[in-house]
């Protein structure tokens, strides 16, 4: 049993949201640099250079990469041997609130979505997915998610007979329909299987897989390659102004599903692909646990 207090959780959540909003991942950076060498459109190359320059500026001056600093999404693996002292949910939301206020990030959360739409002024509530796993640590993956790209996400309850080809068609069609709106070049997360809700959650998580890492199952890896190739033949290009770089990567994950169905969820993430990962080991033992 290990004790982790809510203050530590709050601090870690805050740190990770700040990090995610200011610093882009190396994988995205390298992928855009590579795209710059192959992008055929002059306007496209101009856009990619601006994007690279923007990453550099945000990191150097600790500015939000994009003004839409998103809703605060967290994927958490909570070790079953951890005892949390204090209020778990409050701690996470406090961390989000402090990051967004102290870090000069935009607060975009509104209360009731239909009638009031009042800004909560804290960017809370956070959207929290918790998985309880063996062990005595807490792993956090935070994802500030902007809505230009989130709005272009899609779910299809496909027939098993639609097969791999049907899935790839649906992914490509979703990206085509999104056009310039999700700020291409994008990263595409897909989950096949589960229930409608589970597929949607895991599609978002799939979008955070490292660029360059394929699904270990070669059949799914082939679907990823096929989808990416076809997407980059759509011509949408950087910022949707035409070109050969529309997406940087496609990650497809799968989970078991029902005999009668094949849910497919597609989550689109823009080039401002922000996420950060951190681990909490608890009290004094921290130093020793890291090794």
């Amino acid at each position: 049993m290990r004790e982790i207090n809510s203050e530590q959780i709050k601090e870690k959540v805050k740190e990770l949201f700040l990090k995610a909003n200011y610093y882009i991942g190396e994988d995205v950076l390298n992928s855009i640099r590579k795209a710059l060498n192959v992008e055929k459109s002059e306007t496209g190359r101009y856009v990619l250079r601006m994007i690279l320059k923007n990453y550099e500026l945000s990191a150097n001056e600790k500015l939000a990469i994009c003004q839409d600093t998103g809703l605060a999404v967290l994927f958490i693996k909570l070790g079953q041997e951890v005892h949390i002292k204090g209020n778990w949910k409050e701690a996470i939301n406090e961390g989000v609130k402090e990051a967004y206020i102290d870090g000069y990030l935009r607060k975009s959360a509104v209360t009731d979505p239909v009638f009031d739409r009042k800004n909560t002024k804290t960017n809370c509530p956070a959207i929290i997915y918790t998985d309880i796993v063996p062990g005595d640590r807490i792993e956090l993956l935070v994802n500030p998610k902007g809505f230009g790209s989130e709005n272009m996400s899609a779910l299809a309850m496909m027939k098993p007979a639609d097969g791999a080809e049907g899935i790839v068609d649906f992914i490509v069609e979703t990206v085509r329909k999104a056009g310039p709106n999700p700020c291409p070049p994008t990263i595409i997360g897909v989950c096949v299987g589960g229930t409608a809700d589970q597929a949607c959650v895991l599609a978002k998580k799939a979008a955070m897989r490292k660029i360059g890492e394929h699904n270990p199952d070669p059949r799914y890896a082939k679907m990823e390659k096929d989808a990416l190739e076809r997407i980059n033949k759509l011509g949408i290009g950087p910022a949707g102004l035409g070109g050969s770089t529309t997406s940087l990567w496609v990650s497809i994950d799968y989970v078991p599903t029902h005999i009668a169905g094949m849910p497919v969820a597609v989550n689109i993430c823009c080039h401002a692909d922000r996420h950060a990962h951190g681990v909490l080991y608890g009290n004094k033992k921290d130093k020793y646990s890291i090794n």
């Binding site: 601006m50 994007i51 923007n54 500026l57 994009c66 230009g148 310039p180 700020c183 910022a239």
Partner: peptide, 8 residues
């Protein structure tokens, strides 16, 4: 304007 090039 370039979406996402917000700091620039």
């Amino acid at each position: 304007a370039i979406g996402g090039a917000a700091a620039l």
